[in-house]
Every structure is written in structure tokens, then in C-alpha cells.
Design a protein around this nucleic acid. Structure first.
Lengths: 357, 357
DNA sequence: TTTAAGTTCGTGTGCGTACACAAAGCATCT
DNA sequence: AGATGCTTTGTGTACGCACACGAACTTAAA
């Protein structure tokens, strides 16, 4: 292991001078700078990140702004777990993380959470920009304070966010299209079930639907695609009636796609006699979805590895703040295909996420 | 951030005493030990791994023993890349890694490589135990020297290896069964193509075949499964003839499984008129396989994330040596399903593997 | 009481780097 | 020559922890 001292000795200078060259801090004569650089290359010197981190001791203050989760809506638990995991790890680097939560159905709570957040004067913000109008406000406030920020799981265009970490929803929709297409036969029909109405045009769910439909178009498949929308999942009885009737009338429907994370809620409503032979594709490995997958009610789940998203959002931001490492504008998380036969290993892997040093 | 000094002050002892408790090095009276432990818990103290690693400065010497790769057989490139990546990272911890390679078809080279390896007196060995008889020899030599070792990608039962890192081949076969089953219709038949003959009973490939067949049995599906075996892929002309004739004779065959990493080599031989409508499942995302996947010649690839396997083998061993962290006996890597629609993101993710701190 | 041996604990140093501060070198001008 | 300002370089300390060394204290035997 080559150390700064080794380099210094070789170049007949002090460690401080080598350090100045390494960090481009100036104040070094061109001659010695060249000499040092040459030796650095020749000896293949690499900064010892361990020692570097210890010595830095910049005290950083990160904040996150994401929806909270409850029993009904567990989706955001997973990214938050990733955030927590990463926070633990970076705490050794002198990085403190504060989390602020809001109601994913209430724009006001989003603004309120932000106001609490900004009072702590964070050095950077990791956020899920769910609401459009309010995001404009928040971003202009962050820009004023020159606070860097990145978008997690939800992408909004037109901002100077450091990057976007999350899935590519359109492509996620196309994948569902392919999976369904592989499972059905010529002449069979498909149903898309949306659990909420009036979604903004660029929401994940809308994008998935577009990607799904586009898959059939670009491959010149003239499969009929039906659609139903419900206004939330409050009136379960009515929802069940609607779906079951629809399936009864259209016995050619062999594939169902539920482009939200609520696939389990839907399949539970379907009459057992009707679900036989149906292929169902849903999204996200929430506990309920996994359980339905194991029971055979769901055929495929497309996971966006949201734990990893949360984890990566923190490490990416910290890398940026500490090492000035600018990430690519989009860091798409994989579209992971989960079935009954591989779900065990997926979950196992998640539990073992901490095997890095 | 709570430091050892903070704990020491709180407990009215010196940092040294706290350190003794933390590392169970003895020499502390029961009273003070209890007191310190209580404060440790109360303040949620966690060792700063950064500082810990810096201070340790044990100089460790790791060795790996895996097959080399060439253009024809690229599979082992991926685990090796993972090993290299991890080696770079752990070099900051004072761990040096030396790699020894052998010919995956030549037991002698395996022994020879080991003999070179053991001369460097490694503190631990990461190895792919491809050959049975020779492995017995090697392991008894390692045990004599009390050198810990783990198995990578290839599992052999009955040894005191620290753990096994790799895929679960039987389950990987079952997954292929499910995927094929989803794609075909009642009455369709299936073909298993093995690219080598006389494989040992417990090899990955045999296990995959068993898992595949077992899938249909356990689900009471009476799908006909044909099998062909070739003695390597040397006589391509004859191989092509054999396969194409077989497919011509059995027009009911709608699904093909190639339980090795050579799926692309096989599908290239199939007559274009015969491949239409065939669903093909292969293993491992080698460049050629991925290319065939994109062209539509392969429907599904089941990846074992071998890059991650290599990476994890190093970090697991280092964690064991430095932090005495004993891993679970089996660390299965996920069975990742790859199709034309998600392959881009899979690869992308691999390139970005270094986003951890 | 003295001595020895064992137990319990504190101190100091080093790991490799970052950075503040001080020191030295150098040229210019009075 | 001395003073001044600028550039270039060296030195020292801290980061949090691990561990060697030795000091203080206890107990038992001489």
C-alpha cells in the first residue's frame, strides 16, 4: 500500500505538498507539481478512502422528504428502510440524516413537511416530488438557498435536480406487456385495472399504461385491451361486482395488469371460478402482493427494488457532497421480474443487503 | 455520533477499558463491565467501522482459485470482475488479493494452480471447487494449515467451507420450468438441450435439469419432456443437424431449455423456420446470450448475478477475517429473470455497481 | 511488613489523510 | 540592507479506534 508519505519521500517534498496536488488546492510550483504527479501515476497511488473519510470530518446534514406509510399503503416502507440502512452506514462519515414525512394524498402536508425540513438548514435534500404545483414552490426555495436535491422514485421534468433515482415506468409497462403477451394466445384479450382515477398524465401509473399499450402497438399485435378505473379502493363490494361482471361478459380476457402496487387488493375480489387460467401482472413486492403471488393469484410481480432506491439515494447524495462525484442524470433501478419460483431468493437478498463493508 | 470517549467519560473509566469490553478482551471487573455495557446500550453506541479499519491494520492476504475465461467461454469473466471490484475496495483495509486461475476442463491445472497459490501462504481462500477428487486433496491441505476457505459458484457437500456463495441450481431449474410452462399450451412438448455429456450428478447443470423436471411433477403437469445431449460444441454441423431434425420430427415441441450458459450457441444452429414460435430459456447473461435475447432468439435468460457472487465472496471473507462475522452457510444469489424488455436496466445496474461508499 | 503474583485499569502511540498554521524562499521597492 | 508582500513548502494536530505497555491496586504468601 502506497501512502502519501511514500510519495512525498520519493519527490523530496512534504506530505502537505502532495496533498495540495491531490486536491488541486493550488500553491504548488509547476515544477514540483509535475514531479509529484508523475510519481503519483508511476506508483499508482490511490487515496485511502478510509483514512480520508476519517480525516475529513465535514459535518453534513441530509434531509429526506417522502410519504409516510401505513398498513393500507406499505409501499413507502421499503424505500424508507433503504434510506435508514444507508443512513446508518454514512453516519460513520459524519453525515446526519433527518427524515420528514407527508401524506401522499395531501399536498398541504407536503408543503408543511418541507417547511419543517428547511428550518433544519440541510446541506442537501432527497425527495419524492409527488405534487406538481407544490414542487415548483419547494424547488424554487431550495434553489434560492443553493441546496442540492435529488428526486427519488417520482420523476418531475424541468428541474435542476442532481439526478433521478427510480424506475422507468414506461419501460416497466412494456415489460408487463411482454410478460402477458408470452402467456396468452392469439385472440385472447387483456384487462388493465387502475385503482385510482384522474391521475396526472406523467404519473408512474399512467406511464406504465402507456408503455404497456405501446408494447402491443410496436410489435403489431392487435390484442384487445380493456380498461377499468376505480376511484380508490373504498367501496370494495361495488369494485368486486364491477370486475366480476366484466370478466363474466368477456370470457376472452385471459390477462390482467394492475399498474399500481395494489394488485393483491384487486385479485382478492375476483371470483375464484373466474380467476382460473387468468394471468395477472402487478407491481411491487409489498407483503400482500408477495403473499398473493405465492398463492398463485398473481403470476408476475415487477419490482422496482425500492429498498435499493432509498439506499442509493443517500449514498449518491453523500458521494456528491463528499467526493464531488456527479452522478448521471438518471439512475434507473432494475425492472425485476418476480414469480413464485424466485421470490424466496429476492427477499433473501434484501435481508442480506448489508454485506458490503 | 457517540464515540468511545463519550462512553468512557459517562462510565468514569478510560477509553481502554471500554475498548476491552467492546472486544471482549477480558481484564475488566464484572462491575465495571456491566456498567459499561449498560451505557453502551443506552447510548446506542456503534463502532465506527471507518476508524476501526484504519486502526486495525492487520495485513491480510487473500487468494482466489477460479477458472480462467476466454472468448469461447466468457462465463467466468463476470465473477472475476466482481472479485476485482471488491479487491480494490478492500485494499484500503490492508487486504491484498492474489488470483490463481485454472482450466475448467483440466483437473491437473486445478491442482497446479493450487500449488502455486498455497506457496503464498494466504490467510484465506475463495475457490470454485470444480473437480471432486482434486478438491478432496486441496481441502485437506487447507485444513492442515487451518486456512479458512469458501466455495464460489460451485457447491460441494461435506466440507467445512465457511459458506457457499452462488445460485441454487435446482431452484433455477424449477424457475425455467415455470417460465416455459407459462408460455406453452396444454399438449405442447419441451426439449432440454445439454451441451456436454457425462456431467457429474450434482453439477449445476444436472441440478437444473432435475429442478426443471421436478417442477412439472410437483404441479402434476404431464408435459412431455425430450432431452438431447452433445459432447461439447465442437462439431457444430452435426449438432445443428441433430437439433433441426429433432424439431422437425416433433412439431409439438414449443419450448426449449438450455441448462448451461451456452444457449446462444444452440439457438444459432436452429433453422429460422423452426425457431418461429419457440420459447427458449437459457442461463447467464453472457454477451452472446444477451445479444441472442435482444434478437428474439432467446425468450428468457435466468441470471445468477455472477458479478455479485464474486464481489460478495471477497467481502464475506474479509468480514469474517476482520470482524469475525460468520456468514450463513449458504448465501444464494437471486434468480434474476431477464427478457428483452428489462435487459437494458440489468446491465446498467451492473455498470453502476460501485455506488456504495 | 515485605514481596510476589495476579488483577484491573489508564496512557500513549499509530493507522493515512485533511487542513490550518507557520515558516521559508524569493522578488521588489524604499 | 532592511522592509514588504507574495509564493511555495513544511509541520502539527485531529479524526475514532486498536492495542501494547506499564501503572496502580488487590490479594496471598513469606
Amino acid at each position: 500500500m502506497i501512502t502519501i508519505k511514500d510519495i512525498a519521500k520519493e519527490a523530496n517534498v512534504s506530505a502537505g505538498t502532495v496533498d495540495r496536488v491531490l486536491h488541486k488546492r493550488g500553491g504548488v510550483s509547476p515544477k514540483t507539481e509535475e514531479k509529484i504527479k508523475k510519481i503519483l501515476k508511476q506508483k499508482k497511488f490511490k487515496i485511502n478512502q478510509i483514512a480520508s473519510s476519517l480525516a475529513m470530518k465535514k459535518h453534513l446534514n441530509l434531509s429526506t422528504l417522502i410519504p409516510f406509510f401505513d398498513e393500507d399503503n406499505l409501499f413507502w416502507k421499503s424505500p424508507f428502510s433503504g434510506i435508514q440502512k444507508a443512513s446508518e452506514q454514512v453516519s460513520a462519515y459524519g453525515v446526519e440524516t433527518n427524515n420528514f414525512f407527508f401524506d401522499q394524498f395531501d399536498p398541504k402536508s407536503y408543503i408543511e413537511a418541507y417547511e419543517k425540513l428547511i428550518k433544519t438548514k440541510p446541506d442537501a435534500v432527497v425527495m419524492a416530488p409527488l405534487f406538481i404545483k407544490e414542487t415548483v414552490q419547494i424547488i424554487s426555495s431550495l434553489n434560492e438557498k443553493e441546496t442540492p436535491f435529488l428526486f427519488l422514485n417520482v420523476n418531475q421534468q424541468g428541474y435542476n435536480n442532481l439526478c433521478y433515482i427510480g424506475q422507468k415506468s414506461f419501460e416497466g409497462g412494456a415489460l408487463a406487456g411482454q410478460l402477458i403477451d408470452l402467456c396468452i394466445q392469439a385472440g385472447d384479450e387483456i384487462l388493465i385495472v387502475q385503482t385510482r382515477k384522474n391521475l396526472e398524465n406523467y404519473s408512474s401509473i399512467s406511464q406504465r399504461v402507456k408503455g404497456f399499450i405501446n408494447f402491443f402497438e410496436k410489435n403489431n399485435l392487435n390484442t384487445s385491451v380493456h380498461q377499468v378505473q376505480f376511484e380508490g379502493l373504498t367501496n370494495l363490494k361495488k369494485t368486486a361486482e364491477t370486475i366480476n361482471e366484466l370478466l363474466k361478459k368477456n370470457r376472452k380476457i385471459k390477462g390482467i395488469v394492475i399498474p399500481s402496487s395494489r394488485a393483491s387488493n384487486i385479485v382478492e375480489l375476483i371470483n375464484p371460478s373466474l380467476i382460473e387460467g387468468l394471468k395477472v401482472v402487478g407491481y411491487d413486492t409489498t407483503p400482500k402482493n408477495v403473499s398473493a403471488l405465492k398463492k398463485g393469484q398473481i403470476t408476475f410481480l415487477i419490482s422496482q427494488k425500492s429498498f435499493n432506491q432509498g439506499y442509493k439515494s443517500i449514498t449518491t447524495m453523500v458521494n456528491y457532497l463528499i467526493h464531488k462525484e456527479v452522478p448521471e442524470a438518471e439512475l434507473p433501478t432494475p425492472l425485476e421480474i418476480v414469480t413464485r419460483e424466485n421470490v424466496e431468493f429476492i427477499e433473501y437478498d434484501k435481508r442480506r443487503y448489508n454485506s458490503e463493508l
